[in-house]
Design a protein around this nucleic acid. Structure first.
Lengths: 353, 353
DNA sequence: TTGAAAGCGGTACCAC
DNA sequence: GTGGTACCGCTTTCAA
């Protein structure tokens, strides 16, 4: 538990100066330090188990190689941890470390979280949210290069790039999957519209019908909620006591938990899945969608990819020439979702196409 | 985006020296700096929007006020983020910041994660796991005060304190809840025994029966798995085609997802919950247990509390006199679980008690 | 090729 | 009370 070795210790042991140690260990030894010295330095460093003090390096270089991540409740929620995981993997691969501050959805803590991070001299910032949503970036976030993941600032002047899932396309491809299976009467169980994810998925859903030249039956888009019970009750409304010919043959849900509720309802009503009813989820929630009975066909959110893309962009910005400060690029990168076909969807029942 | 103000800037503006600024802003002004100067310094700091550079402070004080957290897959999993959240809340309240490195369950990355953290000069370390499990603490972890959360090192000489849930008691109280409702034939659906959580919960289960002077029917403890499908198939084995008098009247599951599977099966078999069958979960998984249909009675894991307790202990150790280094306290703190009664459990069906 | 020395932004000791 | 100054550990320039 004795103090860690410093560059000076290494220098002494190798019989050289600290400068030499620094040069060699940073790969700029050739042409500056004699070959023999280099070897001795390397050996000394190894025997002393020397690694540089990152704090001191940060202070000296005025770059901490720390990326601050502010999240609204990613850490405590079972959902989007993968965004952070994806981001962190990229950061780590480039010698960065991330420190995340979770505001637990208390927006009044945004600014102070960013301040704390700024005081720690983070080189860049990333704001991550659990669900897709618009927000006003904390002003002090603009002090360092920043990026938004799974959220966006819709004020055009904000100028912070965002990486978000292509929800419209996701909704469209989900519907298309079912249309191709012959379904014509498809219901959509949405969550509330507090997050723009729901309306966008619905938009895509309708787009698919329009492209197919088919109408969306009125009353088939139901705003229920996001949880199991909402799915259950929504499904009961759609199915319970309704004549077979008047039931939708497929239900697409705005997330996998809704889909669980729908399956629960179908089981209770004695409907076989997918023979009598096809069910789709959304999210491909870890260990939920794939282990359901039946396993859920779902639209996977590209969480890891989003995190990775956001971090890659951010780090890229950091290494660029810092001349072009005010080239306000308010990009918005759309990452496509991934259709995962499992057992809960199948051909439309005979006579209903 | 201009450079941040430094203590020197403040000193100049206030017409004093850096030392004075440091003293005042650290609350040791009285008795050292004239009242007027104090005011001027505070004003100057405010107008310049000065906050100290944490990196510089760390270097000088040789304490970074950073706690490193190594997790096996907490971040990406939907489970134990709350351990980290609880830990982080405590850390933040004392001016610490946490940086978590997720090894994504690759144990070979343990050492390097710890090294990275150590290079960053963390003041302490915490190791968190998703499921309760024994482990060998990475050796270099012993270089700074450390704590384990939801895991433990069973080598007596390890000497790293651990905070874990009281699983035995949890299993006992779950069984007791059902026994009190009159159930006598209770099945236990366990996960695999890779994690000691399962055997401990089973242990508690059997303890409760023994305390009640009742036998556990043979074949009623089933090792299934941890996911929805395992619950489904386990339940089918227990219930499908079995005479009513020979069916268990209650099933307690080793987690909430197993319970979902059991409900799914019950629904399919036309069994009403809790009238025909009581079902218990374990974990009180966020937005799962409380929104199931019916809402699940479950045993809540004290995740936040564990994280908070672990961090509190760790920070306490940091502020203690560092004289008593080798007082190898291999404590193990057991945090009790919390019974949450909802709708999925009820009195035993008539004639089965 | 090498080493001395100047900071990076603070803190804290020590004369005055 | 006050300001000068050494130092935390490292990088980098510059003179020898």
């Amino acid at each position: 538990m004795n103090r860690k070795a410093t560059a000076l210790d290494v220098a002494k042991l190798a019989g050289v100066s600290r400068s030499a140690v620094s040069l060699v260990l940073n790969g700029r030894g050739d042409g500056n330090v004699a070959k023999e010295s280099q070897v001795r330095i390397r050996e000394a460093a190894a025997t002393l188990n020397y690694t540089p003090n990152a704090i001191a390096v940060s202070l000296r270089n005025r770059r901490s190689r720390i990326i601050g991540i502010v999240s609204d409740q990613v850490v405590t929620s079972p959902f989007d941890g993968n965004i952070i995981a994806g981001a962190d993997a990229v950061a780590r691969s480039q010698g960065f470390v991330t420190v995340v501050m979770d505001t637990e959805s208390d927006e009044s803590r945004d600014e102070s979280a960013v301040s704390t991070l700024l005081d720690r001299q983070v080189d860049g910032l990333m704001y991550v949210t659990v669900g897709l949503r618009p927000l006003h970036v904390p002003l002090n976030m603009l002090r360092v290069p920043s990026v938004l993941a799974n959220c966006f600032d819709d004020r055009p002047e904000a100028g912070v790039p965002a990486v978000i899932p292509d929800e419209v396309r996701g909704g469209r491809e989900a519907a298309t999957h079912l249309l191709e299976l012959g379904h014509r009467d498809i219901a959509f169980l949405a969550g509330d519209s507090i997050t723009p994810a729901a309306p966008r998925r619905i938009q895509g859903h309708c787009d698919a019908f329009e492209a197919a030249g088919l109408p969306v039956r009125p009353g088939r888009i139901i705003q229920a909620g996001w949880d199991i019970d909402a799915g259950f009750h929504g499904a009961m409304k759609l199915l319970d006591g309704v004549a077979a010919a008047d039931r939708p043959t497929a239900i697409v849900c705005a997330n996998d938990r809704l889909a669980i509720g729908v399956v629960l309802a179908a089981n209770r009503l004695g409907l076989a899945i997918p023979q009598d009813l096809s069910i789709m989820g959304y999210d491909d929630e870890f260990r939920i969608a794939s282990t359901m009975v039946p396993a859920l066909t779902t639209m996977a959110l590209p969480l890891r990819e989003m995190g990775a893309a956001a971090m890659t962009g951010l780090l890229g910005e950091l290494s660029e020439e810092p001349e072009n400060d005010d080239s306000v690029r308010a990009d918005q990168t759309l990452v496509p979702c991934r259709l995962v076909v499992r057992e809960s969807t199948g051909p439309v029942p005979a006579g209903r196409n």
